[in-house]
Design a protein around this nucleic acid. Structure first.
Lengths: 232, 232
DNA sequence: TTAGTGTAAATTGTTGACACTTTATCGTAT
DNA sequence: ATACGATAAAGTGTCAACAATTTACACTAA
């Protein structure tokens, strides 16, 4: 048996189409509320309607698409309420993940997290105190904590389904802008609690972090809604 | 417009097949790990493979089915670890739901919950202190709390996807047996916290309740595994 | 004008057939 | 006997056509 670093996994058309659609929705190529015509989309993707419909069923389950019988498929609508709901769910899940991480994360992993945050501190967006926290950096921090729980369900929710949903909002609106510096401080507080092996404090720090993000997003969206009251 | 109490909603074959499969998996008609042949199953359901495959894609997302490319579909395997993971996630979600409920549930709803629990106390299984809490009663209690949050995402996770997953374990093993009396007491403690409008206590009571269920299930499954070590 | 009706076009719902992959079986050579 | 390879069978992956439903539009009547 030869050892390859990364095995090339066979993919079906359904897998490929699912990923492509996911990307299109998150990246805004397909706008929220936009109707999808199966024939048209299938043709433009170069596949038949079969695999496309299967991919759509999957994305329905992830709440990225919405199908009404005998009418068709729409890209999920966004709303401040839905984002608030989503972040409430994330607060609960990431909170308990962080609690568990305080027990299970190894010293080496904690050291590496420390270096990670030091790297983030060098980023332009964070130093200026404005702008976004670089998305991949933020994801890295949160996903390491989730992964350390060794809870496959919890991890896949936080880094998978629920993360995709969050990214839709990240792209469409500047829900997270101007919070980079504070977010880094909160990340540091979380890491300190992990390093102290304090589950209670770890959970509370993470919950505070996400609650703050939620409040910030709420304000940003309300301000945006006031500026352009037409768009529902 | 004439008023009908309940509108008959149009259902596609995919919807019907999804529900039927869900029922079959939860009820044990399809055993964990069992392989599904599309042609055979489609024929026995009286539909073609198209709608069946779409239904399967949905249930994949709910972790009730598992597909390996070019091999086929299997009913999800169970394991003590997976149940533990699931109950950890539920602890987090129902915990925060209960916290929110302490603020949002109306006095009338709380009164009704009280009557609900008084009814449960009369049930044979609870009075004897052994046996299961009647499933629909338990579901009713938990789902009212979730619904009162008015958080659609949270509610649908707790009463939908994650509940179906839990039911698979409920059916296959007596994970919840012999805890009826204690569960009722815990339900009462939760309701007291809600009535007192104490969010912190409400969350803690719910988390304790689910954590106890998790520990109980863990012991039950380990005992079962010790008795029949062959079954993985 | 407006409401209502009926037809045509567009779109989704469903099916059966074909292509490709994997697995099982049998035969052959060592 | 065992390992290897070819072949057949079974099952999944994909597609294109047909059926059913909804929507758009024109036409008619009050």
């Amino acid at each position: 048996m030869q050892g390859f670093a990364k095995k090339v996994e066979a993919k079906s058309l359904v897998d490929a189409v699912t990923e492509r659609l996911e990307e299109a929705i998150i990246g805004g190529e397909l706008a929220p509320g936009e109707r999808i015509r199966e024939q048209t989309l299938a043709a433009s993707l170069g596949v038949s309607r079969g695999p496309l419909r299967e991919a759509i069923r999957r994305l329905e389950g992830r709440r990225l698409l919405d199908r009404k019988i005998n009418f068709g498929v729409r890209v999920a609508e966004l709303s401040p309420q839905k984002l608030d709901d989503l972040l409430t769910v994330r607060e609960a899940l990431e909170g308990i993940a962080c609690r568990i991480a305080a027990d299970r994360m190894s010293d080496a992993e904690i050291d590496e997290m420390r270096r990670l945050l030091d790297g983030h501190a060098e980023q332009r967006e964070v130093r200026s105190g404005e702008g976004y926290y670089v998305e991949s950096s933020d994801f890295d921090f949160h996903s390491r904590i989730a992964a350390s729980t060794q809870n496959e369900l919890l991890t896949s929710m936080v880094t998978g389904d629920l993360y995709d949903l969050l990214r839709v909002y990240r792209y469409k609106s500047s829900t997270m802008a101007g919070r980079a510096a504070q977010a880094l401080e909160e990340h540091r507080a979380i890491l300190d609690a992990l390093a102290a092996r304090d589950p209670e404090l770890a959970e509370q720090s993470m919950r505070t972090h996400i609650r703050n993000a939620r409040k910030h997003a709420k304000l940003a969206l309300e301000k945006a809604a006031a500026a352009a009251p037409a768009a529902e």
